[in-house]
């Protein structure tokens, strides 16, 4: 098993002592097949136990270890050291306040997810005794792609509009709303539109497409957002030009 010497430049920030962040260089011996997360774990275990960062599954399903690696939003557990040359710069996910070291403040994101009512709101209440909601494979396929989001926030780090306009509800939240709107069992679209079709909803999106490029699960949030824009636009013109069509 071969080894390699890797230099990492990691952003450090101690909220109790530091006025602003600084970069700290670590040089560690790593295994050839390691990912950046392995290097961080090695640093924390053997070199500097004060280094703070989030991680959990180490297999790209929990969404915890999102970081900026050489300026690109990536999951640390999915970033192979062999793909990098020279010093690897590791910073907290962009566009979020820094709590400590590589840990970001994600309160804004969590609040936005909750705002879109990410749960099934049935068209008509149906007691459990009446049986399950049935769904064809085609109906499932319609929204399946948007269920794959692991809430890793890489899309928020990549989105330039979220960087400029912090109130923008963001790609993951809108994709999540779209996931439920497209679900045949759901009837809550009108309620979600209050959040999604607002100015800080989908209308701050300029279809940069960076969100879909960095998404590790291929959710394609950019697609969800454009679909929401078109549906919302059709709705608006119907409502204002043909009000008699309202149910």
């Amino acid at each position: 098993m071969s080894e390699r010497q890797v230099a990492l430049e990691v952003l450090r920030y101690n909220p109790e002592t530091d006025r602003e962040p600084r970069l700290q260089r670590y040089s560690v011996t790593c295994r050839e097949e390691w990912v950046v997360l392995d290097a961080l774990n090695h640093i924390k275990e053997s070199v500097d136990p004060t280094l703070s960062y989030r991680w959990s599954c180490h297999m790209a399903v929990c969404g915890s270890c999102g970081m900026m690696i050489n300026g690109e939003p990536k999951l640390a557990c999915k970033s192979f050291l062999r793909d990098y040359e020279g010093v690897i710069r590791v910073e907290p996910l962009m566009h979020f306040p820094i709590e400590r070291d590589l840990v970001t403040v994600i309160d804004d994101f969590m609040a936005k997810l909750a705002r879109v009512k990410p749960y099934l709101i049935p068209k008509q209440a149906k007691p459990v005794g009446e049986g399950e909601y049935r769904q064809t494979p085609a109906e499932l396929k319609k929204f399946k792609q948007f269920t794959l989001c692991i809430n890793c926030m890489l899309c928020y780090a990549a989105c330039p509009e979220y960087g400029i306009i912090p109130k923008f509800i963001g790609p993951a939240a809108i994709s999540l709303a779209h996931r439920y709107n497209q679900d045949s069992r759901d009837g809550g679209r009108d309620q979600r539109q209050e959040e999604i079709a607002a100015t800080e909803g989908v209308w701050e999106c300029s279809f940069t497409g960076a969100c879909s490029e960095v998404c590790p699960e291929h959710v394609d949030p950019a697609a969800a957002l454009q679909q929401v824009k078109i549906k919302s636009t059709v709705d608006w013109y119907r409502k204002h030009l043909m009000p008699w069509m309202e149910e």
Partner: peptide, 29 residues
């Protein structure tokens, strides 16, 4: 333990030089 989150500033217009994809976006616009 007191919280003192640090907010990083976004460069007003140089952000699109950060990566080719933002330059392509700007070219498109």
């Amino acid at each position: 333990m007191s919280r003192n989150p640090y907010v990083r500033e976004i460069p007003k217009f140089r952000w699109f030089f950060r990566h080719p994809r933002y330059l392509r976006y700007m070219a498109r616009e």
